[in-house]
Design a protein around this nucleic acid. Structure first.
Lengths: 228, 228
DNA sequence: ATTATAATTAAATTCTGATTAGATTATTCC
DNA sequence: GGAATAATCTAATCAGAATTTAATTATAAT
């Protein structure tokens, strides 16, 4: 046919990564197409060759980030280890992802709402586009599925007697809130690596579930000295 | 002097609450002065009688929300109870606040970045206003102070032997991430009340620190059955 | 009642930013 | 080399939004 990805051309993935980065800094509404374009040495108009609209671009960023995370979790989940070990792997996997690419991680936290509000017809987005709504809803289903992966293994661990009885829904959200927040405060090159942060966080939640008594990494416990 | 708060007039606090609500739904950039004004039956122009600019309005929303939280924490903190009990009170206090007013809670999560980016001179905000920068920086100092309240009591608990040794910085952020996230998913009238959510969350983190062995609420623990 | 001022408004101003239209340039296939 | 198409650009278009200005209305104190 014609022109291939060459020197001056960028592909969609380049744009998505650049967009994620700009989004992390500025947020969806404050990010202009020009900002994103500048990041990959294009003009705003050029972006419309790759994406139908700003909304679709955002959606693509989020879809990509989420899919990576889900794939990884699924892989871990179907492993024949104790629940605690699998959960530990899931937590560290997720957090390492987030620290490796804080832009996407932060977008996942902050831009969800913009996506929800990208209502067709309503001032702002002009998508009478059923296509958009459909893809957006699919994204939200995926996100729920992601949350469910965690919820499920917690329930499994409780059923197996590995974990104490907790409210799986709230516990899961506490975890995911903590994970998501990492994308906000984590800075590469700081005191801790992504791996280290991940290990600490996993320890935090696994200890909460097992009381620090079960298998897994050692979780040194000072016996409480009642009464301060 | 003249006109007092009467029928048609609204006071600043009315506007702040309304603004928090609109902000939660739309986010800072997507929220127009008109949106906020409509919420209190005013026109956009009227808001400028009460607030110097949109940035100042946002800042006021956040300041108010944070101050409420800090006051409450301080009160709890200077109580002569074991660290675990004080921490529990702090967690539940914070989360009940968030669930009682998810708008402010969510703003605290989502709008922080808009506030950071409200740079004077830079396209968008026109504050060459040193006043704005000063107040904004003061806000960030307050936010750090808030985080420190939690960090401090964790360290105190570790020193007292009540808590196991954790990385206080990361643990604190895990907690606050979980708390903040509540403002995002919590819906009044759902399965759980704010109090219930708060209790579960407090339990989650305190158990992680004490191994469920110390004082405090009972944290039933199924002995792990090693090897699934 | 008069006056001073607080609260509000409608209308104008000015900018920014998403999106479109119409070329232009580069690349591959024949 | 020519045809077809991809990738990009420049220059409009167009709407929405923050802020300003210049009135207008209401209230309290004198």
């Amino acid at each position: 046919m014609a022109r291939k990805p060459a020197d001056q051309s960028v592909n969609k993935m380049d744009i998505l990564l650049a967009a994620a980065d700009v989004l992390r800094r500025n947020g969806y509404e404050a990010t202009t197409m020009k900002d994103i374009a500048a990041q990959v040495n294009l003009t705003a108009a050029s972006l419309y060759h790759h994406f139908k609209s700003k909304d679709f671009l955002l959606l693509s960023v989020l879809e990509t980030g989420l899919q990576v995370a889900i794939d990884q979790m699924e892989r871990i989940l179907h492993t024949p280890q104790p629940c605690a070990d699998r959960l530990r792997a899931m937590i560290t996997g997720h957090i390492v992802d987030v620290t490796a690419n804080p832009a996407v991680g932060a977008a996942m936290v902050f831009e969800i709402r913009s996506l929800m509000n990208a209502r067709p017809g309503i001032a702002g987005s002009i998508h009478s586009d059923a296509a958009f709504i459909e893809r957006r809803d699919a994204f939200f289903r995926q996100r729920d599925a992601f949350e469910n992966l965690f919820r499920r293994i917690i329930k499994e661990g409780i059923a197996a007697g590995e974990f104490r009885e907790v409210d799986a829904a709230v516990f899961t959200r506490a975890m995911l809130g903590a994970h998501n927040w990492v994308g906000v405060w984590y800075r590469p090159g700081g005191r801790l690596t992504g791996q280290e942060v991940a290990a600490i966080m996993a320890d935090t939640f696994i200890t909460s579930l097992t009381g620090g008594l079960a298998e897994g990494q050692p979780a040194p416990l000072h016996r409480a000295q009642p009464g301060r």
